[in-house]
Amino acid sequence: MNRYGLKEKIELRINHATHHIEVDVRDTLLDALRDQLGLTGTKRGCDMGECGACTVLMDGKPINSCMLLAVDVMGRNIMTIEGLAQDELHPIQQAFVENGAVQCGFCTPGMILTAKAFLDHCSNPTDDDVRQAISGNLCRCTGYRKIVEAILDAASRLRRGKRHV
């Protein structure tokens, strides 16, 4: 073992399931999700907290999973893109598909999770609110217009869903 290769056993709560894994102490949450747990829907775009492709929700808040060490997230509830759809696509996912908000798809999981956290707290946003909310998630394909439209559409779907409950 080299001087940095220390391993530690940790417990991670991901998408309501508990996982016991052994990580290199240098592993980020992103490393653990992708390499240890096979949850590759979380993308690595920069590894420096700049692009937002690795966004996951920690206790409901969007975070860059490349900026946290895996050993530091014990006891927190993590949601990845794999945990969003239940029996059918989540309304945000559906809205992304139908509004043409997905091109290459590499920013999509992070973008959707950021939108989820945002819409959990803001049910009737404006165009500007949405842009502010997703300004930490870079997309190079769409020019953002259809992403913003999809999130506004998702907000309206979620409001309708609530009324019916």
Partner: peptide
């Protein structure tokens, strides 16, 4: 796009 579906689910 049909390929949008696996992209939104990861």
């Amino acid at each position: 796009r049909p390929d949008a579906i696996p992209k939104v689910t990861g």
